[in-house]
Design a protein around this nucleic acid. Structure first.
Length: 733
RNA sequence: GCGCGGUUAGCUCAGUUGGUAGAGCGCCUCCUUGACGUGGAUGAGGUCGUAGGUUCGAUCCCUACACCGCGCACCA
């Protein structure tokens, strides 16, 4: 028995050494597996593309969970003989990364992006992104993730840029990408548009004011934003509202807080007669709903009263004031004029920007959009329909299944996707202008072309991640071999943001699905069930956890009992429990190796030639476990598989089988001893194999000392899929 | 308002096709010093949210309700 077993198991010593050895072997790369003869060249492929972590800093426990789950499937498939590919990468995360760096620069140097200029800011962001990248890669490796680093990708590198431009061009040519002047979510703090799903609603209490535009205005109007009323062009009421019917169609002039306005009364079914006074002041340029009302009644969109800095642009006393200041001034004016009829408290949802926290100001802007409702030539369907169909037809399976409802619900509410951003970090919109001329896709030859200043929504490049990482648009072997990918594993919180968009982009570009199965994990919370956050100070750093308890323990703690789609709680105590388990396993190995040292070579193996009946039965029961665990993994119940393995190793193998073995080894019956030795070696060998996807390090380390070892690494050893004992052999006993 | 999920042992959660419930941690009692004290053996503890229904039989299927969590929409 090797001396290492005389000491307690030390993950910190073992894990980094083992990962290095694996990496050097090249066997994370399926081509290398074929070359070295551990995988057959015509074996079926299995692929996962890693959801790329944002280069905004470091990984959190959610990432650790993702890595643990995906590595389970990857290692399992590799051992089953598949040509198994797991592609690593990181996401530039455009706005998220830029705002982190901008904040830092503001703090350190009190400068904003305009002080630095585009080039300098990008330089700084790239430095930061590179540092983050290195930290992240190191963290990923620490978790034991068997990713093929030779294929690493970045959402903003040259190859991905080519893919992005190609897709953009194709969408533009088919008329799905268009430039339009529309209301967008403008973030005054971040100075950019954001998409609908980057908007976060915060419940706040606000004042709800009921007023009239002037003394002789016939209808009272209620609003939480009196300052915007200088931009009103109409008042909308419900067509059936008896109170206001007689005024519909009439027009009025007024001077509202120094600003001349012209108001038409219109009837619109969207107005809720029960809410407020049942009359809506219509501000087309600063509200999506109002814009739509204006469209329906032929009203002007042109009255713009707020600028990109959320300041008033009208003349008079509120000129250049921030909207919040202007609100107070307008209310004051209303009071003085005797036009304010009521003031009450209501709770309302305020739209804020996910990244900056700025309050969204809806503004009309010229932006690039993807049309989700236009029939695609040649397909006869809209993007929305394609995205629904891919899941409804069961081509893509979502786990847990009930998330399909959320998915459909989400897609049905989908509107055109605004893809241009007024930030600098990201894929530049691949459009060039020269006077009236426009060029799309790649930079045109000739003088005087100016590229669009904007960049693309970060989800545009992550939407094509499953195939951009495989070398597309080049016709690569990887793309042919590994796409569509087999599994997409990610948190349920980005089902609409990302999963849906990958389906959308892939369906459009390739006419196929991007992946066959979507496995959604839940959120990782602290021991009290709270979200982990900086402000609460309850973050767990995966690096700290693995340093303290080992990556194997961290992985088990994250996987055992963690059903898909359900949030989980994690605490150091839980991880500690699995560190104990690792040590238990170590001692199981120690006992077995110690007591089987003199076993003749021909007794070592996975056969049953020397086994007596009782031992055959124990081996048969183990076969059943292997079968169960295999089925659990195949059917995505890895939370169950992990628990069964834990239970078997500790409470069957250690507590029962090993305990029973002590008197046998101390006894006189040589036949029983030989049988038991063969049994224990087989049980341990199989247990290591099927536990390997979950606890790769310790199992590999023990395997290296096993007399049953039949491959250089456990990582590429065979999964014991075939039962050793036939049922009839046991039943006859 | 629409939708989704949850409600099972003190705590955290499982329970794969309906057959009077399981794990981990915690707790009680005991044992043990050559595999492991990061150990072993026992035990206590649940009318499976409430009310109906289907069934020979329901934690599991159906209906309603309550409470908790979440998503979407509205928010003039």
């Amino acid at each position: 028995m090797p001396e290492k077993f005389l000491k307690p198991y030390d993950p910190s010593e073992t894990e980094s050494r083992t990962y290095d050895t694996w990496e050097k072997s090249g066997l994370f790369n399926p081509d290398e597996c074929v070359k070295q003869g551990v995988t057959s060249a015509d074996a079926p492929a299995y692929s996962i593309v890693l959801p790329p972590p944002n280069v905004t800093g470091r990984l959190h426990m959610g990432h650790a969970l993702m890595l643990a789950i995906e590595d389970v499937f990857i290692r399992y498939k590799r051992m089953r003989g598949f040509r198994t590919l797991w592609v690593p990468g990181t996401d530039h995360a455009a706005i998220a990364t830029q705002s982190v760096v901008e904040k830092q620069i503001k703090k350190d140097e009190n400068k904003n992006r305009h002080d630095l200029g585009r080039e300098e800011l990008l330089k700084r962001i790239n430095v930061f992104a590179l540092e983050s990248h290195d930290t992240i890669v190191n963290q990923v490796k620490t978790m034991g993730a068997s990713l093929d680093w030779s294929r690493e990708a970045f959402t903003l590198d040259e190859s991905r840029n080519k893919a992005v431009n190609t897709v953009f061009n194709k969408m533009y040519d088919s008329g799905l990408i268009y430039r339009g002047h529309r209301i967008v979510n403008w973030d005054p703090k971040g100075q950019t548009t954001i998409s609908d799903d980057e908007v976060v609603y915060e419940e706040r209490t606000a004042k709800f004011y009921t007023f009239r535009y002037s003394k002789d205005f016939p209808i009272p109007v209620a609003t939480t934003r009196p300052e915007t009323k200088v931009g009103d062009v109409a008042v909308a009421v419900h067509p059936d509202d008896a109170r206001y019917k007689e005024f519909v169609g009439k027009e009025y002039d007024a001077v509202f807080c120094d600003v001349p306005i012209h108001i038409k009364i219109v009837a619109d079914k969207e107005v809720d007669p029960e809410f407020g006074t049942g009359a809506v002041g219509v501000t087309p340029a600063h509200s999506q709903t109002d814009w739509d009302i204006a469209d329906r009644h032929g009203l002007s969109h042109e009255v713009i009263i707020i600028n990109e800095f959320a300041k008033m642009t009208v003349d008079g006393r509120i000129k250049d004031k921030k909207t919040t200041e202007a609100r107070e001034i307008v209310v004051e004016w209303l009071k003085t004029e005797g036009l304010l009829e009521k003031e009450e408290d209501i709770t309302q949802n305020v739209a804020t920007a996910e990244r900056t926290g700025g309050i969204i100001e809806p503004l009309p802007k010229l932006q690039w959009f993807i049309d989700v409702n236009k029939k695609i030539e040649g397909r006869g369907k809209t993007l929305k329909e394609l995205v629904i169909e891919a899941v409804r037809s069961k081509q893509i399976k979502i786990i847990p299944e009930y998330f399909e409802k959320t998915y459909f619900h989400w897609v049905e509410n989908l509107r055109d996707w605004c893809i241009s951003r007024q930030i600098w970090y990201g894929h530049r919109v691949p459009v060039w202008y020269r006077g009236e001329e426009i060029a799309v896709g790649e930079a045109p030859d000739g003088e005087g072309w100016m590229q669009d200043e904007d960049t693309l929504d970060t989800w545009f490049s992550s939407g094509i991640w499953t195939f951009s990482t495989l070398g597309w648009p080049n016709e690569t072997e990887d793309f042919k071999n590994y796409h569509p990918t087999d599994l997409l594993e990610t948190g349920y919180d980005i089902l609409p943001f990302w999963v849906m968009r990958m389906i959308l982009m892939t369906e459009f570009t390739l006419g196929t699905i991007p992946f066959k199965t979507v496995y959604l994990h839940g959120m990782v919370r602290d021991a009290k069930g709270r979200k982990m956050s900086k402000s609460l100070g309850n973050n767990m750093d995966p690096l700290d956890v693995t340093a303290k308890f080992g990556a194997d323990a961290a992985r088990m703690a994250l996987v055992v009992g963690n059903t898909p789609g359900t949030d989980m709680r994690i605490s150091e105590d839980k991880v500690k429990g699995y560190k104990h388990f690792a040590n238990k396993l170590w001692n199981i190995a120690r006992f077995i190796l110690e007591n089987t040292e003199n076993t003749p070579k021909n007794h070592v193996g996975r056969g049953t030639s020397y086994m007596i009946e009782g031992d055959l039965k124990i081996l048969y029961e183990h076969d059943v476990l292997v079968k169960d665990v295999t089925a659990d993994i195949e059917e995505f119940r890895i939370y169950m598989a992990a628990e069964k393995l834990y239970h078997y190793a500790w409470h069957e193998l250690a507590d029962k089988i090993i305990e029973e073995s002590k008197p046998i080894f101390a006894g006189e019956d040589a036949g029983a001893r030989a049988s038991r030795a063969q049994l224990l070696l087989t049980l341990l060998d199989h247990t290591l194999r099927i536990l390997h996807p979950f606890m790769p390090f310790i199992t590999e380390e023990i395997y290296q000392s096993m007399p049953t070892k039949d491959s250089e690494f456990l990582m590429v050893a065979k999964w014991p899929a075939e039962p050793v004992v036939q049922k009839k052999d046991v039943e006859s006993a």
